[in-house]
C-alpha cells in the first residue's frame, strides 16, 4: 500500500502492448472485409448504376459479354451452373462426411481415431487444382466409359469432385459437433437399453443438430466459392443444365477465365465484378447462417440455445 508499489512495471507494459496488438489484429479482419467489399463494389458500380438490369441479370441465361453488336449479361445460367454443381456436391459430401464424423466420433478409439483425424485434415489440404486434375484426367474418361456419355466434363464430374473436396472440412466440423454432445447423454440412453445405433440416431444426432447444419452450410459456401476445380471439371459451357451430363459454367470460373482478357473499366469488366458482388453476398449469407447455427440455432425460437444440464454440484 505504498507509492513505490504503484509503478507501471514491465508486465504492465507487456500487457498493454499485447492488448493493442490483439485489437489491431481483430480490427484488420473488419478492415479487410469492408475494404474488399468496397473495392469490388466500386469496380462493379458503373455497371450496376447504368447498364444493369436486375431482371436480365437474374433471369436471362444469355451471357454473351463479348458480342460486338448486342452484349448480354444474363447470369442465370452461371448461377444455375454453380447451384447444380454445389447441390450435387452436397448429395455426395453430406453422407460421406456425416458417416466419417460418426465413425470417428462414436466408434473409432485410440490410435485409429487419431490417425483418421490426421488423414481427414490432410485431405482438406489438397490444393483444388489437384482435384481439378483428378476431374480432368480420371473422372472424365471414367464417366465417358461408365455412362457412355459423349464428354465427361459436366455437372456430374464437377459435383463429385467438389463433394470430395468439401467432405473433409465438413467431417471435421461435424465431428466437433458430435464431440460437443455430453457423454452423460450417451450413458443415460445406453443404460435404458438403447443400442449403439439408437443412441446415435435418437440422442447424439439430434443433440448435435445445429453443428451438423453448420457443417453442411459451410460445405455449401465452399462449393459456391470454389473456382479452379470447377473450372477444370465442369466443361465451362454457358448452359442451363437439364441433366447431370450437361456441361455448365460456374460464376467463379467465369470470373477467373474472363477477367484477364477484359479491358479494365469496360462494361464486361464491371459485369464480372457484379458477379463477384453476388458471390460475396451469397457466401456471406451462408457463412452467417452457419455461424448462427453453431451458436445454437436462430434466435427467438423456443428451442433456443442448449443450456447445460443442471450443474448444481454437491
Amino acid at each position: 500500500m505504498n507509492a513505490a508499489a504503484d509503478r507501471r512495471d514491465l508486465s504492465w507494459w507487456v500487457d498493454k502492448v499485447a492488448q493493442i496488438l490483439v485489437l489491431a489484429g481483430g480490427l484488420s479482419a473488419i478492415v479487410f472485409i469492408v475494404g474488399i467489399f468496397l473495392f469490388i463494389g466500386r469496380e462493379g458500380a458503373g455497371f450496376i448504376f447504368e447498364g444493369f438490369s436486375l431482371r436480365e441479370f437474374l433471369l436471362s441465361p444469355r451471357w454473351t459479354p463479348t458480342s460486338n453488336h448486342n452484349p448480354t449479361f444474363g447470369a442465370l445460367a452461371l448461377i444455375a451452373g454453380t447451384a447444380s454443381v454445389t447441390g450435387l456436391a452436397m448429395v455426395v459430401a453430406v453422407p460421406f462426411s456425416l458417416g466419417a464424423a460418426i465413425y470417428i466420433g462414436e466408434f473409432a478409439t485410440g490410435r485409429g481415431r487419431e490417425t483418421l483425424k490426421v488423414l481427414v485434415e490432410l485431405l482438406a489440404a489438397i490444393p483444388s487444382v489437384v482435384w481439378g486434375f483428378v476431374g480432368l484426367s480420371i473422372m472424365n474418361p471414367l464417366i465417358v466409359r461408365v455412362f457412355d456419355a459423349p464428354v465427361g466434363l459436366n455437372v456430374l464430374n464437377s459435383g463429385i469432385i467438389l463433394g470430395l473436396m468439401a467432405a473433409p472440412i465438413m467431417t471435421t466440423i461435424a465431428e466437433d459437433a458430435l464431440k460437443a454432445v455430453p457423454d452423460t447423454y450417451r450413458e443415460a440412453a445406453e443404460a435404458m437399453g438403447a443400442t449403439r445405433w439408437q443412441v446415435i440416431l435418437k440422442v447424439v444426432l439430434p443433440a448435435g443438430r445445429n453443428g451438423l447444419v453448420a457443417a453442411t452450410l459451410l460445405g455449401v459456401g465452399r462449393g459456391f466459392g470454389e473456382t479452379m476445380a470447377v473450372l477444370m471439371a465442369s466443361g465451362h459451357a454457358v448452359n442451363l443444365p437439364t441433366s447431370p451430363f450437361d456441361a455448365v459454367r460456374a460464376l467463379t470460373a467465369t470470373i477467373a477465365a474472363e477477367l484477364g482478357e477484359t479491358a479494365e473499366g469496360s462494361e464486361h469488366w464491371q459485369a464480372l465484378f457484379t458477379l463477384g458482388i453476388f458471390l460475396f453476398l451469397v457466401t456471406f449469407t451462408i457463412n452467417f447462417l452457419a455461424d448462427v447455427f453453431v451458436r445454437g440455432g436462430l434466435p427467438g425460437r423456443r428451442r433456443r440455445g442448449r443450456r447445460p444440464v443442471a450443474s448444481a454440484n454437491p
Partner: peptide, 15 residues
C-alpha cells in the same frame, strides 16, 4: 438393460 432402470447422480434431462 431395458429391464433395469438407472438414475444417475447428476440429473440427465436428454436434449
Amino acid at each position: 438393460r431395458r429391464r433395469i432402470g438407472v438414475v444417475f447422480p447428476l440429473p440427465v434431462g436428454l436434449p
